[in-house]
Amino acid sequence: MTYLGEIALILFATTIAGALSQRIGIPSVIGQLLVGILLGPALLNWLQPGELVHVGSEIGVIILMFMAGLESDLKLLKRYFKPAISVATLGVIVPMVCFYIYGIVMHQSFERAVFWGIVFAATSVSISVEVLREFGKLNSKEGATILGAAVVDDIMAVLILSIFVSMFSSGQSGAPNLAISLAEQAAYFVMVFVIIRWVAPVLIKLFERLPVPQAVPIMSLVICLGMAYLADLTGLSAVIGAFFAGIAVAQTNAHEEVETNIAPIGYAFFVPIFFVSVGLEMRFDHFWSNLGLILGMTIVAILSKLIGGGLGAKLLGFNFHSAYIVGAGMVSRGEMALIIAQIGYQAKLLHPNLYSELIVVIVLSTILAPLLLKDGIERGGQVKECVRKRSDRVG
């Protein structure tokens, strides 16, 4: 029954850390991430990234992205889908080019240098979503662009990974057929459209008639977990399915009831476990001996996404501060990069001695991303305030 103590420790520590973070003016998610580093193998070693944490974190990130979809404005997402494609495209190309060059400079082989780029081309906006929500920016043009870009980015990363592993993998046999994978993913997005347009509203109406407490929230969770599972089966990230499930439920009359009932479950239990799980991946085994490599990779990881994503937004008419917010929102690598790194390690596309260092860089970029996003949002707010005061004087 030791898992009961672990859960109690996680919930207590993340609550205190979140409160302290807000008190000193940083996003509460930073404190929760640091709890994982403090209590995990990197320092105190009180918690291990075992099955409990793994399952809890998967459910946590799925609920987090479901709530993001539930709170998103579908019209706004459609309006900024074109900038999202630009942000995702440059946000993939720039990191891949930068990490390929950096890998060659660090004497990696062609395949390993390219794979570095694939790992850091991935984006995980689940943590950025929490910061956007905290600052009331989830339903802004920047928030809509970041969410839309995350969907496109995920598809691009999966396609590039599938092609690369099938061409260069020496540790896996029978790599999935690319044409079949593409067909499955295309079918999935057709299914998403059908669910949003017809299936979700019908299911929600049916469950509204059942004389069972919480029937509608339960049905919404079935839709969420089902779409996440199907996304995972097609090779996409489960969080993409959860996000679209949130959008589907948001189009029904049960939007407020679902949000009121699901949010406490997620934010009081599963979401903190997810944030802690990211910190638990940190290790300091060879940190000091490879400090130069780690710092160099972290700088490239942050700047390549910040510049790539920001440039993609700037080219589509965003001003500098909005482009900076979008770029910062794409910096977090999180679970998507961790999964790709693990696949590369199993396929012998990563040097065994550098695997742990790569994980450290992924975690560091994920921890620093909310700080960059907070800085961008605050700078954007200051600019708007200056413009407003100037307008008042002119008026």
Rank of each mutant, 00 (worst) to 15 (best):
H54G: 11
G235N: 02
G376W: 10
N139G: 01
L203S: 00
L77T: 11
D392S: 13
G56I: 00
P49N: 01
N353E: 15
L64C: 09
N45L: 01
V53L: 09
I85M: 11
F269H: 03
V129L: 02
M336P: 11
A144W: 00
I299P: 05
A263C: 08
K78T: 15
V61K: 07
F12G: 15
A186I: 15
R333L: 06
I10K: 01
T260W: 08
L11W: 12
M1R: 13
V271E: 03
S181L: 15
V249R: 01
M219R: 08
G308E: 05
I30S: 01
G381N: 12
A254M: 04
V361P: 06
L371A: 12
S237R: 04
G18W: 02
G266E: 02
G31D: 02
F270L: 06
V119Q: 00
V239Y: 02
L11I: 14
T2E: 14
S237G: 13
G40D: 04
L371S: 13
L4G: 03
G174A: 04
I101C: 05
F270V: 08
A42Y: 03
G327D: 00
F243T: 13
N139E: 10
L159C: 14
I59V: 15
I26K: 07
I62V: 15
P83T: 06
E142W: 02
I160F: 05
G246Q: 08
K75R: 14
P27V: 00
F12W: 05
F275P: 10
V55W: 13
M67E: 09
I294Y: 03
Q48D: 14
S332F: 01
F207A: 03
F284L: 14
Q32T: 13
T89S: 12
M219D: 00
G376I: 09
V165N: 03
S322T: 13
I307V: 15
A328T: 08
A186L: 15
K384Y: 03
S86C: 06
A242G: 12
H351F: 10
I343D: 01
